[in-house]
Nucleic acid binder design. Structure first.
Length: 303
DNA sequence: CTAGGGTTAG
């Protein structure tokens, strides 16, 4: 690829690097990186740089992404967003480390007076929310001039995950006032806020509003949230009726939510029946067995 | 060249 008269053009490189990102092929991505290091006009191109950052992030190598990011002579808003949303994705596995990196990114943005709006602002809110700091997410959120459905959804999730359902619902209620329409993903977080706070009535109302007020067809994820909401609150037979009346096929999350409720409330026999349905829908994952072992052990301790 | 989601281990 790197022979003097056979140089790759920029867009070819970008496309190949994005393929590496999607496949998670770090070794191929790294090899391409090494091969273009000494081709300066290509290596310093912001599109190629962004694709390299994205590739390292998606392949789970945040350190290399950051080293490269530091060396990029020109950065644009896409570079920042790849960096931040990459950190968020990594956060699932190495939360502490990347919260630190995330703070570094935030400090850099402040110092260089980059506007934390749009993609960058949303990515920051999302990052803080996922790293468990709803307050820092809220700080960025409040400072944003243009909030869209992504900003609101990320903030609602931040409060919901932090056990602050009231604040999540307050933020949600603000959306129409700024002309922002909630979508299916927003409702997943709204319903999940209600379910973790035991707000059954509130959850029902939002679930019904989805189709009545917002013209959104509830998906299996929303049914799963409702089963979780009812089940956690101990309304197990209501949850069973709810599943029986679903207009679409329940998936593993729906059965998993009901099985989770059996585990919380010590329902052994029902749990065994649900377990069969869950394994039928999703035989490969181990979640069902974990929940079932919880049911047996909690039933033992109830005796 | 870029975005967000539901169950889950004594």
């Amino acid at each position: 690829m790197c022979r003097s008269n056979l140089r790759p053009d920029k867009m070819t490189l970008v496309v190949i690097l994005l393929a590496c990102s999607r496949l998670g092929d770090l070794s191929l991505g790294t090899r391409i990186h090494e091969n273009i290091c000494d081709i300066h006009d290509i290596y310093s191109d912001v599109f190629v740089g962004n694709a390299l950052v994205d590739m390292y992030m998606k392949c789970g190598d945040a350190d290399s992404a950051r080293k490269l990011f530091d060396k990029m002579p020109v950065k644009n808003v896409v570079s920042w967003n790849s960096m931040i949303s990459g950190l968020v994705q990594q956060g699932q596995f190495k939360e502490a480390l990347h919260l630190e990196l995330g703070k570094w990114v935030h400090a850099y943005i402040d110092k260089n007076q980059i506007k934390a709006d749009g993609f960058v602002g949303n990515a920051l809110v999302d990052m803080y929310a996922k790293c468990g700091s709803a307050e820092q997410a809220f700080g960025v959120f409040q400072g944003m001039e243009c909030k869209d459905v992504f900003s609101y959804t990320a903030m609602i999730m931040g409060f919901a995950m932090n056990g602050e359902a009231e604040r999540a619902l307050d933020i949600f209620a603000e959306m129409p006032m700024v002309g922002s329409k909630p979508d299916e993903v927003t409702f997943v977080d709204v319903l999940s806020a209600c379910s973790h706070a035991g707000m059954v009535e509130e959850g029902w109302r939002h679930f019904e509003d989805m189709s009545k007020v917002y013209n959104l067809e509830p998906q299996t994820e929303h049914y799963g949230c409702m089963v979780d909401l009812l089940g956690r609150a101990g309304l197990i037979s209501e949850a069973e009726v709810f599943i029986a009346n679903m207009p679409i096929e329940p998936d593993a999350f729906v059965w998993g939510a009901l099985l989770g409720a059996c585990s919380i409330h010590g329902k052994v026999e029902l749990g065994e029946a649900i377990m069969k349905k869950l394994v039928a829908v999703e035989p490969v994952r181990d979640g069902a067995y974990i929940l079932m072992s919880n049911i047996y052990s909690s039933a033992k301790s109830l005796k």
